[in-house]
Design a protein around this nucleic acid. Structure first.
Lengths: 282, 282
DNA sequence: TCGGATTACGTGCACCGTAATGATC
DNA sequence: GATCATTACGGTGCACGTAATCCGA
């Protein structure tokens, strides 16, 4: 058994060319490194270096050993990372959501129900959300379709209706309802973390421009202080202060009405029973 | 970076179930092992054990870590072995021979020509001798056919004639020459390290019985003190004392006359030039 | 003369073993 | 009481750093 730090030091030497440079990199003295390399040779019982009095260099054995050592070090690091990830996973619940609206509510609920667990969330419009749930990258998902009952357990959570949010002076501001295609070609302010809504808008309005905003607060400012149309939903309007004088006009496209389902893989149904019960009793 | 001996100790614990048993196996004290495992947890920053006051056991993380650790230890060991083998190979010349007769002469020659090198030899009737030469398992080979000149360099060394070695009372003892098939069905004393001769005898005399002898000295005794036929060759008779009163009758089969070639892969021709020169000038 | 490797030497501390403690069967 | 793990404690070996030496450009 040869300690791995000797191999690490050998690799450092290989990368720096001299003991002094490698020693500096490793935060040890040059003599210490010199002795370590001697010990490595001794323990392997193989000569690894050409010694030309004032110049140390790897011989063929040394080159080979460096290649193997790099490999071993990579493997150990990846091993340690995987162990830590495995452990972390057990103490975190990852939630993937197709839309942002329910995320805060879920974080709060999960924190209450699963004390001590870390809740990590991700909003994505990516249709692979479901397969990631299956692969274990998420333990819970908020979807806008009820998933296959063979593989997943799910329950309805709530629904959301999309509105276009227009300044009163906008030519369409007095409509009772609009289809997205009627809005195509215009320039919108859009929050960047809208999950599947983003894809919907781009699909239905291929000629529109979207000024993406990372920050909800900045978006609010811009909505309040510009004439650019933006979007909102019934849920958002219920939560947020109605500061602006904008008018919200419902989008009539069928997909503009989303039904949200909370889902987990069937094998974890028991674990998440409290979550489902919370929504089923409503 | 986590030192590998900690993983080794973890595996020992996993295999023995208790710290005390594992500590004994590892030739360290129980407290030392206890502290090592605490340090491993600390350095990984992951809990690996269930602690029930007087019983220590692996939790899920621990089980996973043990699996990874076994793997890592195997890899390190194999790495060390391969490095040593690589080094050893550079200081040993492996000779594969299809027949035993030239081996001592070659060992002596190689020892003189390549001072400090270890000479390792193997006699085999295996037809893969040539492919093993190509793969580098042997650096030199003694063959009974001249090999492909595209891939190998070779030169003629000497030839050998097979004789059947009969007691004077044997019914065929006064023949001038014999084919192997005429001897089929009889029982022979045979040295076990005869290389390709062995295969020849079995092929040409499918009904013969062979009493295999590992030890040349024992074989000599039996030849001198039994009536069982055996084999010899011109080369052997030239070297050995003619102690026995047996008669040697030449075998007339074409294959009973072997021509030996010394061969190496072409890329090593230069390295072995002294060997070839030694035989070419004869 | 400087940069680099090795050798010499004294020191500190990390790790060990023994002993004590606590806990469980 | 026996077994097993952990904590306490004192001792020591070993790997470290500093300093000295040697060598080559």
């Amino acid at each position: 058994m040869i300690e791995i730090h000797l191999f690490e030091q050998l690799v450092a030497f290989a990368e720096h060319g001299t003991l002094s440079a490698a020693a500096e990199e490793l935060h040890i003295s040059q003599p210490a490194l010199s002795r370590s390399m001697q010990r490595l040779e001794e323990e392997l019982d193989v000569k690894l270096f050409e010694r030309q009095k004032s110049r140390l260099s790897l011989n063929e054995n040394g080159e080979l050993t460096v290649r193997y050592a790099r490999n071993l070090l990579l493997q150990e690091n990846s091993m340690i990372e995987q162990i830590r990830a495995f452990d972390r996973k057990k103490r975190t619940i990852s939630l993937g959501s197709c839309a942002p609206i329910l995320v805060p509510e879920f974080v709060s609920l999960l924190s209450q129900l699963y004390e001590g667990m870390t809740i990590s969330t991700e909003v994505t419009g990516d249709p692979r959300l479901l397969s990631r749930l299956q692969e274990g990258r998420y333990q819970l998902a908020i979807l806008n379709k009820k998933p296959d009952e063979e593989e997943f357990y799910s329950c309805f959570v709530s629904s959301e209706q999309l509105y276009v949010f227009l300044p009163p002076v906008h030519p369409l501001a007095d409509a009772d309802g609009l289809y997205l295609k009627e809005l195509d070609g215009q320039t919108f302010l859009l929050y960047s973390q809208t999950g599947f809504w983003d894809g919907l808008c781009r699909r239905k309005m291929p000629n529109a421009r979207f000024l993406m905003q990372q920050d909800m607060e900045v978006l609010g400012e811009l909505v309040a202080n510009s004439a650019l149309p933006s979007f909102t939903t019934d849920c958002v309007m219920r939560q947020a202060d109605p500061v602006s004088d904008r008018v919200a006009i419902p989008i009539l496209d069928e997909e503009a009405h989303a039904s949200y389902y909370c889902a987990c893989v069937k094998s974890e149904k028991a674990r998440f029973r409290p979550v489902f019960r919370h929504y089923e009793k409503k």
